[in-house]
């Protein structure tokens, strides 16, 4: 509505400039101008996301033969996935590790986001920047840092040995699922904090006062007001961590060892040393379907629970 004034006033100038049917359409329709501005980004991402995915999907029904592909349509790759236990085992492990990472990260980040949303009144901006700063910096280097910390002769082991607390290095630190979970949780913490913070910050403080005035203690108040109202943040934080971490392969490659390998490593190997691209494509498609299904179930489940509660 307010844009209407802008359009009518500037219309003569701009029609002179463009003076075409297209130009007039731009002037008349707010939506058309919006689409025009959004179009470059949409087309760019559309072409670079949808087309590759389409080809990936097609390729997953091919088979590798020698250095090329046999482009005959077959579901052999998908059959192979379900026949060989190693594939499903790796997928399950990836989902398990990501699930653990999600739970830990959200649990650990929630109090932090809560603190900044409710108890920081000065320099709030500084806190937010400090919390999210590491996220923007090299993922590879953050993983590398954990290798230095957890390594066989790394920070923790050598420090403990120096203090005489242990005789030999603790071997379970590096090359284990725990190492992968710790590293991923640390690396993705900032991604969880922002949605949690935003949802907590939005909560109307007078609701908390009302609850207190009506006799709720801090604990009841938290579970009856704060937690339910911040649930959208918890949901988006969980998804924002769970989805990307399932496909991770750097952390397991550097810190996982044989027990910590994930589906991402398998996909990477299909496109690298194993050189079976169609199988890699099929694994990628399976991973995506898996993630989409789990996310959907998770969202529906939380919506259902929320309805039951309220």
């Amino acid at each position: 509505m307010s844009d209407q004034t802008l359009q009518t006033r500037s219309a003569p100038v701009a029609t002179q400039a463009t003076a075409g049917r297209f130009g007039r359409l731009m002037q008349r329709s707010e939506a058309a101008r919006g689409y025009a501005l959004l179009a470059p980004s949409l087309i760019f991402l559309g072409v670079l996301i949808l087309v590759p995915f389409g080809i990936l999907l097609v390729m997953s029904f091919w088979t590798a033969s020698g250095f090329g592909f046999d482009t005959g349509f077959t579901t052999a790759n998908y059959q192979k996935f379900f026949e060989r236990p190693i594939y499903t085992a790796l997928l399950n492990r990836s989902l398990f590790i990501s699930g653990m990472v999600t739970v830990f990260t959200v649990l650990l980040c929630y109090p932090m986001a809560y603190y900044v949303a409710f108890h920081v009144h000065r320099h709030k901006m500084l806190w937010i920047v400090l919390m999210t700063l590491p996220f923007w910096t090299s993922y590879l280097l953050r993983v590398f840092a954990w290798k230095v910390v957890l390594g066989y002769e790394g920070v923790i082991n050598s420090a403990l040995m120096n203090m005489g607390l242990i005789e030999a290095p603790l071997e379970f630190l590096l090359y284990s699922q725990q190492a992968v979970i710790i590293t991923l949780a640390h690396a993705w913490a900032a991604f969880a904090i922002l949605p949690l913070y935003v949802s907590l910050e939005k909560i109307d403080k007078s609701l908390l006062e009302a609850a207190t005035d009506l006799g709720d203690g801090p604990v009841r108040r938290f579970f009856r007001i704060t937690l339910p109202l911040s649930l959208p943040g918890v949901i988006s934080a969980s998804l924002l961590i769970f989805i990307p971490t399932t496909g991770d392969y750097i952390t397991p490659a550097l810190l996982g060892g044989p027990d910590g390998a994930m589906i991402g490593n398998l996909i990477q190997k299909q496109f690298g040393p194993i050189n079976n691209w169609p199988m890699g494509a099929a694994l990628s498609i399976i991973l995506m379907l898996c993630i989409a299904t789990i996310s959907l179930v998770f969202i529906l489940l939380t919506l259902f629970v929320r309805k039951r509660v309220s």
Binding site: D3, E30, A31, L38, S41, L45, L240, P244, Y249, M288
Partner: peptide, 27 residues
């Protein structure tokens, strides 16, 4: 601007922040 279908379009644009990058890489 108000335009029909904005929500899905924004979701689509933000998709690369969430989808595992390995998928984009291999695709």
């Amino acid at each position: 601007y108000r335009m029909p279908g904005k929500g899905p379009m924004v979701t689509f644009i933000m998709l690369p922040l969430v989808v595992p990058l390995i998928i984009f890489g291999v695709a």
